[in-house]
Every structure is written in structure tokens, then in C-alpha cells.
Amino acid sequence: MFGNKNGSSRICLRVQLLPLTAALKKTPLFDFHRERGGKMVDFAGWSMPVQYKDSHIASHMHTREHCSVFDVSHMLQTKVHGKDRVKFMESLVVADIAELKDNQTDQGYLYVVSNAGCADKDSAHMKARLAEFKAAGFDVDLEFLDEALIALQGPSMAQVLQEGLKDDLSKLAFMTSTLATVFGVPGCRVTRCGYTGEDGVEISMPQSRVVELTEKLLASSEVKLAGLGARDSLRLEAGLCLYGNDIDETTTPVEATLVWTIGKRRRQTKDFPGAHIIVPQIKAKTARKRVGLVSSGPPVRQHTPILTPDGKVIGEVTSGCPSPCLKMNVAMGYLDAAFAKNGTPIQVEVRKKSVPATVSKMPFVPTKYYSG
């Protein structure tokens, strides 16, 4: 979970890829994906494109070198209204929402984007907490949005998007957002963020206009469609967690090296969910820690055991893939904290054989977020 600087809290987590099943939900771009050769799979109960006619590696590298459009309309978008909206949101997350600055005129709400795989339980949890707040006399309301959401990611994003904006995009820094007309589509919320490690934006808009806007973006030779396959390898190179793999309800921010998500004031007040467990861990450390790993040879995948050089099991890989940019295997996982120092030689067990690996800092590929 993390906050942006426009007075909105974004909950940005992802879930595990599953085999295609019946009765899947469809985004407003479903037919658009099929018409353009998208290979559709079940992702968090949604039919989503895993890739298009280009190979996974080609799509990955195009995003790193140019820019790509990703459909993220399966994410849950919510507005939290009312004068007690900050207090309400801080009862749900660890972030210091009160310190976030609005970079536009006061809209009177917080904008929240939640993980698609957790959408049902997140919305139920928010509704239950809302009932508690209303019963206690607080002024707060929820509005669940039925809008489309796309992400434009890559180094040429600003060049492409600026052509469709009147406002100067250079004034929009990482984790800030603005309301704008984009290539003639009014009422778009443009947030400078993403899940690839590249400079990028997420654009929320009415469902009826998403095909039109996506087509206008694709009119640029810089832009191609990209699917979940490239999105996963891009986020792993950037050292970003995937919900259901690298973090879940049993993982604390300290174990996951995500302490930066917890505001300084929140650590002092200790009034956030799980504070009685998390705050002591910040001071005393934890027995295990999320780390990066690099190796050569056969690819390292989820659930691969992590071993000491003499073969003792000390952890498990949670995500792994061959890095298209680095031409080596990258992975992340949890291991005993005593072995978590960068540069520590370890082993991973691939197909019942021990393969040398090294604990590595993350991100594996430097991130390029735009700070203004």
C-alpha cells in the first residue's frame, strides 16, 4: 500500500495468474483485445490479455525502450467522500494519509485503487468499516467507480501523452494526479505512477471512451499493446511485489522490506491495523526478510527452495523469471535474515539440483520514476 501526493491513497497490489475458466468478467477493452490478437487468460476472475502477436520478450523490451498500453480496468476504483475521509482511510491502511498534499483544487475526496484479486473482500471490508464510522457519527461515504483504467508505461510516455494534453505534463511528478481532457476525452484522471519501473501514467475515464482513447494512443509508432506476461517480468525487474506471490495477509511490511509505506507519525501513534505486531518488528527486526536473487542456468520460479552453500534450506522463492534486460535469472523470495546481506552466496534448488545464486539488491533494473 502506498500514498500519492494529491490527497489520495492508492492500494496497488496484484494477484497470481490462473488458468482460463468460464464466466469470467470482462473489461471494456475485451473485444478490442481479441480483435488485436490478444491471448486471453483468467486473471483474478477477469479475462485479460497475457500477450499479443509480439513475443513476451519483444513486448517487455518495447516497454523499456519506447512505451506500451496496459489494460488495468480490472482494478477496483473508489472515491472516499466526507470531512472524515482521512480518518476513515487511516483506519484501513498504514500510510500517513493526512500528510499527503493535493496538487489540484480540493475535490473533497480520496481516490483509491485496489488490487483486482482482493476487490470483493476489500470492498466488503470498506463497507463494514463505513457502517462503523457512520454509526459513530462520522461524516464519510464511499463511491465505487464503474470506469475504465489503462496504463501507459515507458520512456517515451511523456512525449506521446503530451500531444493530447493542454497542461504541461512536466509539472506532474511521480505519484501525483490531475483531471484533464486527454486526446479529446474529457473527465480523465491522469496519475503519474505504474507497475513497470518506467515513467508512466494510469488514466481513468468513462468506459464508453476507453477504446477511442486507446486507439489514439496506439496511433503513435512509439506505442504498442502489452499484456500480463510483460507486466509481470517488468515489475519483477523493478523489484515490485505481486500480491499472492510476494506478499499476502500473513506478511508484515517489515518482513517484506516495505517499512517505507508506514508514515513516521503512524509509527508513533501506533493506530494503524496490525501496529501491535509491526511496530515492535521495526525495532527488533524479523527472522525472515524479502530479498532479491540473481543466478544463471535454469530459470528460478515460485516455490523454489533457497539453500545455504552446504544445502540447508533457509527460505523460498516467491517470484522469478529470466530477465530480458539483464540476460540472467532474477527472483525475489524470503530467507533467514542472517543470510539477507547483498552479495551473500546461496543456492537455489531447481529440478532437484542445486544452482549457485547470489543475494542482490533491488530493483534489478534501475527505476525511472519522474520526480519533476
Rank of each mutant, 00 (worst) to 15 (best):
V182F: 01
K285Q: 06
F174M: 05
E215T: 04
D310W: 04
K39G: 03
Q347L: 10
M1F: 11
G82A: 08
V365F: 11
P299F: 00
N4E: 15
N4C: 07
R290F: 03
T257W: 04
K127G: 04
V185D: 01
L100M: 14
A58M: 06
S55E: 08
V15W: 14
V113N: 09
G37A: 01
L228E: 08
A180C: 04
V140I: 11
E255I: 10
F272S: 09
A284H: 15
G37S: 02
D120Q: 13
P280D: 06
K87H: 12
M61E: 11
N6Q: 05
M61F: 03
D167E: 13
E249I: 13
H74C: 09
E255F: 08
E222S: 13
A148G: 09
I346A: 06
P299A: 07
E349G: 00
A338S: 14
V86W: 03
A230F: 00
V86L: 03
L18R: 14
F183C: 00
V313C: 10
K87F: 12
V113G: 01
T196R: 00
V350W: 04
C67N: 06
Y195P: 00
A22T: 00
G194L: 11
V223T: 06
V365C: 09
F2V: 05
T304E: 13
K312C: 04
Q302F: 09
G229K: 10
V211H: 00
V15S: 14
F88Y: 14
A226R: 00
T344G: 03
T27A: 05
D146V: 01
I278M: 07
D310E: 14
T250A: 12
T251W: 10
G45A: 04
C118K: 14
G227M: 03
R129P: 06
S220L: 07
G154V: 02
C321Y: 06
S204Y: 07
R290L: 10
N103W: 08
N115I: 03
K26R: 15
L225A: 04
N6H: 08
S220K: 05
L258P: 00
S114Y: 11
E90H: 05
C241V: 11
Y334L: 01
G263A: 01
R290I: 08
M48H: 06
Y243R: 08
A131G: 13
T251V: 15
L218A: 06
L307D: 08
L110T: 05
Y370F: 12
V223E: 06
K341L: 08
T178F: 07
L100Q: 15
Q302W: 09
L293G: 01
I314V: 02
C193I: 12
N342K: 10
D146A: 05
K87R: 15
G263R: 03
M332V: 13
V112R: 12
S233D: 07
D106P: 02
F183K: 02
P206N: 14
S8A: 09
F138L: 13
V182G: 01
Q16P: 01
K285I: 10
A340C: 05
E90W: 10
A136Y: 09
G229V: 01
P253L: 13
R189I: 14
Y370L: 04
E222V: 02
A284C: 10
T250R: 12
G315V: 01
T27N: 08
P366V: 11
